[in-house]
Structures are given as C-alpha cells and as structure tokens.
Design a protein around this nucleic acid. Structure first.
Length: 103
DNA sequence: GCATTGACGTCGG
DNA sequence: CCCGACGCCAATG
C-alpha cells in the first residue's frame, strides 16, 4: 500500500469522488490535488492510467467544457458521458453550467 | 539527473 | 471569435 500521497494518487481519489452525472475540469482537479498549475499533469496521469483502474476519467474535461481527446478516445469518452445521462454534443461539448462539479 | 512530452490554462494579435 | 505562442508542473524515457 502506498502511504505516499503522490500527485497521481491524489488525482485518482479526486476523480473517484466525482458523482455520476457530473463532470469537472483538469484545472479544478489539479487545484484540488494541491497544484493549481498542474492541470497538464492531470491529463498526463490519466493518459498513462494503469490498467485496471476503475476511475471515471471520462468525467474530466477541459475548462471549455469540451472533451480534449481526439479520435476514437474522444468518442469513447463521449459515449461514457452519455451513458451517465450527460448531454454531450457531437463535438464533445458539455453544458458546464449544468454538470460542473467541485469539492 | 537531464531532456522531452503533454487528455491544460492564460494572454496577445 | 479563432489562432498562435508561452508558461506550469509532474511523468516518462
């Protein structure tokens, strides 16, 4: 067990705390993780997510309320969000005023 | 330990 | 409103 609350581990906990049907931004997660300027790192960590992680990484979008991913990954995230009852445009636009969540 | 990368954010034109 | 450039910070090689 890693008693060290390293950055990625904190990110995991924060994302795991996002209620279903809601989303948050990389900047918010980074801020909650203790580094408000490490928004890139949040994405970097999620990109290299270890296999088996059940984290709802699809509930994390950029501050524009749009999915930052591209290609098949974008569509995968979009489908996941739709499955949670979140309305997502074909380009990945989400109504942040309605779904944005923060601790 | 150094150099490169990147699922972001903010500013300027 | 759209595009380009810079900055930030931690992970990865």
């Amino acid at each position: 067990m890693d008693t060290q609350d390293s950055f990625p581990q904190r990110v995991y906990q924060i994302i795991a705390a996002i209620p279903e049907g809601h989303v948050t931004t990389y900047g918010d997660v980074a801020h909650l993780a203790g580094s408000p300027r490490a928004a890139r790192q949040v994405g970097g960590v999620l990109k290299r997510l270890p296999e088996g992680s059940k984290l709802p990484w699809h509930r994390v979008v950029n501050r524009h309320g749009q999915i930052s991913l591209t290609g098949p990954d974008l569509q995968r995230q979009r489908q996941a969000l739709l499955s949670e009852g979140i309305v997502v445009s074909g380009d990945g636009h989400i109504d942040m005023e309605r779904y944005r969540w923060n601790y």
